[in-house]
């Protein structure tokens, strides 16, 4: 009985020893690899920069898209349908049409803009007053601006537009949302493009890191042989190289976050001026602390993946002869 208890506590102590040894070697490998990376500052910085650029490119584009998305989001407040009335339609008929439209369930609000009002507004806003004044007749039609009820969106909005255009007094019905929809689908397309390019660049990062680690393995071939001769396991030999990959990846992530931040700072001034011109309070959204952290973590994971690839392919082949 006491023998068994002794055995159990001994095996627990043994487990703790093994665990401590494991932990110790992890610390040692991590520190040793970091020193090796920092010992060659120029080549390490180049590796970091390459990885940084490859990661910053898709991330930066994605942030740009997010900003455009936010900008257009400000616009997707109620869609409007502009009903341009036929030439001969009088203001009274237009008024009747307006009140008939108001009663429909699909319609939330309407506003009538007579051709005279439209001309005035247009001259005031466009700066073409002189030109417009010289025209013999007002080229603008009467206009009813119609705001559809909230639940009308996308397809049903398009069919509402068609229905309205079929009315006898209406010359043309224009859905003001159309350009926005085009923008949105264009953005969706761009987003997918960025995703594809990003995927390729990420693959590139993994391959670059794999190659860097392969070179590191080659240059330490003799050392690996000796470590295996005196009883180093594959895991033991692998560890410093995995850490080397991790450090390259993490450094690359830091570089990428820095590059993105610098580019945004570079763009913030002009964007602010532009927004002011449009009387918009729009502000350029950035990476944020979490985004930067994620980028560094992503870099680290890619570094591990790359070095794992190299280690799996090249390390087992090095055996003492």
């Amino acid at each position: 009985m006491s023998g068994r208890r002794e055995g159990a506590s001994q095996s627990r102590a043994e487990f703790r020893d093994v665990y401590n040894a494991w932990l110790r070697h992890h610390r040692l490998s991590a520190a040793d690899s970091l020193f090796r990376v920092l010992d060659n500052p120029v080549s390490s910085a180049l590796t970091w920069l390459v990885i940084g650029i490859a990661l910053a490119l898709p991330v930066g584009l994605n942030i740009a898209l997010d900003n455009v998305g936010q900008l257009s989001g400000n616009w997707d407040s109620p869609a409007q349908i502009s009903l341009f009335l036929r030439d001969g339609v009088s203001v009274e008929t237009a008024g009747e049409l307006q009140s008939r439209l108001e009663q429909r369930d699909e319609v939330a609000a309407t506003r009538f803009i007579s051709r005279e009002q439209a001309l005035e507004e247009f001259s005031a806003l466009s700066g073409f007053a002189d030109v417009l004044a010289s025209l013999e007749q007002n080229p603008l039609p009467n206009l009813i601006l119609l705001t559809p009820a909230g639940q009308y969106q996308g397809g049903s909005l398009a069919s509402l537009r068609e229905e309205l255009e079929a009315l006898p007094d209406v010359a043309e019905a224009v859905l003001d949302m159309e350009w926005l929809q085009r923008l949105n689908s264009l953005m969706e397309l761009t987003r997918r493009g960025v995703l594809a390019v990003g995927g390729l660049l990420v693959l590139g990062v993994v391959l670059i890191l794999g190659n860097t680690i392969r070179l590191a393995i080659e240059s330490r071939r003799d050392e690996i042989v000796i470590v295996k001769l005196v009883g180093g396991s594959n895991a033991f030999v692998r560890r410093p190289f995995l850490y080397t990959g991790l450090w390259y990846g993490v450094g690359g992530g830091v570089f990428a976050a820095t590059l993105v931040a610098i580019s945004l700072w570079f763009l913030a001034g002009p964007v602010g001026e532009l927004a002011e011109l449009y009387q918009s309070s729009f502000q350029l959204g950035g990476l944020g602390v979490m985004g930067a952290l994620n980028l560094v973590i992503l870099g680290g994971l890619l570094g591990l993946a790359g070095s794992w690839l190299a280690v799996a392919r090249h390390l087992a082949a090095i055996e003492p002869r």
Binding site: D17, A21, R24, L28, D222, E223, I226, G231
Partner: peptide, 27 residues
Amino acid sequence: VVFQNHQLLFDRPVFDNVALPLIIAGY
């Protein structure tokens, strides 16, 4: 094992060379 051709790590000092088996064993 004492090897015919030494098999030492030439970029590490004597101490590190001798310590290698102990590092591997996790002392």
